[in-house]
Computed example of a mutant assay.
Amino acid sequence: MTTLGAVFRPQLPPERLRPVVRAAEDAGLEELWLWEDCFMESGIATASAALAWTERLRVGVGLLPVPLRNVALTAMEAATLYRLFPDRVTLAVGHGIQGWMDQVGERADSPMTLLEEHLAALRALLHGERVTTEGRYVRLDGVALDWPPAVPPRLLAGARGPRTVRLSGSGADGTVLDCAAGPDDVRRARRLIDEGRAQAGRTGDHRVVSYIVAATGPGADERLAAELDTEAIASVPDVAVSGDADAVAAAVRRRAEAGAHTVVLQPTSDEPDPEGFVRFAAEEVRPLIG
């Protein structure tokens, strides 16, 4: 069965988070996804608040940019969330926007090497291992978490380019594909993920999360067109959807048929009713999806 989620956009001020979270919980939305975009809102802080305000809602962070984060700190924060809110947290890590990494003086000469090292160390720490490593970027000397998650969690990687997608297959337990990936891109990603998994000898399932820009209600077509121009993805086939619940559900099903396990509706940055958007996803779109 396809999981349906929605995004709380960090273009909204933090004080808007609680009413959106409560609307998602009350409407029965399965997952709410948060972003750690520079220089807006912390992924861990917003996830902690969202989880504390709810009892059932699952919360994803897609993604935490690894150049900003020492892997031991990421592991400590992640483990705390996993223990406080078991079975309700999904975290993804990734390169981050390189221009933002430049701004804070943390751009890596080899983002691929950094992500590979970070994934390996973070996954080991969250599995309760004691880690010593002397990599190009990640250096740990006998580091182990005092409070690792009771059950090793699924760790996802955000990916766009083919090398990173293949790395997510070899080094992560799932992949987050951003709004630039249409159904054909999801299919290609699944093939690259499988190549990475085979190369690393990985078994078990691998969760694919796919964002799709969606707009509904008055002015939906105009808002969507402006968003696609801003994101420079207007030419990508079937990359976004506007319209009623039937239209949005059909687009979600196409992503699922392409290989996405979770489809996350991403509102436009100027969505006029964020609470209404999550209710629309849960109450009108969800019943139309298998």
Score class of each variant (00 low, 15 high):
residue 176 V to N: 04
residue 162 P to I: 03
residue 114 L to Q: 05
residue 145 L to D: 08
residue 232 A to V: 15
residue 224 L to E: 00
residue 171 G to Q: 13
residue 147 W to E: 15
residue 257 E to H: 14
residue 188 R to C: 08
residue 258 A to P: 02
residue 207 R to S: 05
residue 193 I to P: 01
residue 141 D to V: 03
residue 46 T to G: 05
residue 282 A to H: 10
residue 35 W to C: 09
residue 110 S to F: 04
residue 254 R to N: 01
residue 71 V to P: 00
residue 156 L to C: 11
residue 185 D to P: 02
residue 200 A to G: 12
residue 282 A to E: 04
residue 188 R to K: 14
residue 140 L to N: 02
residue 270 D to A: 13
residue 278 V to E: 11
residue 119 L to H: 11
residue 283 E to W: 02
residue 40 M to Q: 13
residue 51 L to A: 06
residue 93 V to N: 08
residue 15 E to K: 09
residue 112 M to R: 12
residue 145 L to A: 09
residue 168 S to W: 02
residue 9 R to L: 15
residue 75 A to T: 06
residue 83 R to S: 12
residue 77 E to C: 09
residue 81 L to D: 07
residue 244 D to P: 13
residue 31 E to N: 11
residue 201 G to V: 09
residue 125 L to D: 08
residue 38 C to K: 09
residue 30 E to T: 12
residue 250 A to M: 07
residue 71 V to D: 02
residue 206 H to P: 10
residue 259 G to D: 09
residue 100 W to H: 15
residue 241 V to S: 01
residue 230 T to D: 09
residue 127 H to K: 12
residue 43 G to C: 12
residue 7 V to G: 01
residue 58 R to M: 05
residue 206 H to M: 11
residue 28 G to L: 10
residue 118 H to G: 03
residue 81 L to I: 10
residue 270 D to E: 15
residue 187 R to Q: 12
residue 143 V to Y: 13
residue 165 V to W: 00
residue 229 D to G: 14
residue 86 P to W: 08
residue 16 R to V: 06
residue 93 V to I: 15
residue 32 L to T: 12
residue 240 A to Q: 06
residue 45 A to L: 15
residue 139 R to V: 13
residue 17 L to G: 08
residue 234 A to C: 06
residue 116 E to I: 09
residue 278 V to Y: 06
residue 157 A to R: 02
residue 40 M to S: 13
residue 203 T to Y: 03
residue 191 R to V: 14
residue 174 G to H: 08
residue 103 Q to W: 11
residue 62 G to K: 01
residue 24 A to C: 05
residue 278 V to Q: 11
residue 158 G to M: 10
residue 27 A to W: 03
residue 193 I to G: 00
residue 230 T to A: 13
residue 98 Q to D: 14
residue 61 V to N: 04
residue 254 R to E: 13
residue 40 M to G: 01
residue 289 I to R: 06
residue 30 E to R: 15
residue 142 G to S: 07
residue 122 L to N: 02
residue 87 D to P: 04
residue 25 E to A: 09
residue 127 H to M: 06
residue 11 Q to L: 13
residue 149 P to I: 04
residue 105 G to V: 07
residue 19 P to Q: 08
residue 140 L to F: 01
residue 96 G to Y: 09
residue 203 T to D: 12
residue 289 I to N: 06
residue 188 R to Q: 14
residue 284 E to F: 08
residue 66 V to H: 00
residue 17 L to R: 03
residue 131 V to M: 13
residue 214 A to C: 11
residue 248 V to D: 10
residue 207 R to V: 12
residue 213 V to K: 07
residue 253 R to P: 00
residue 84 L to P: 08
residue 138 V to R: 05
residue 189 A to R: 07
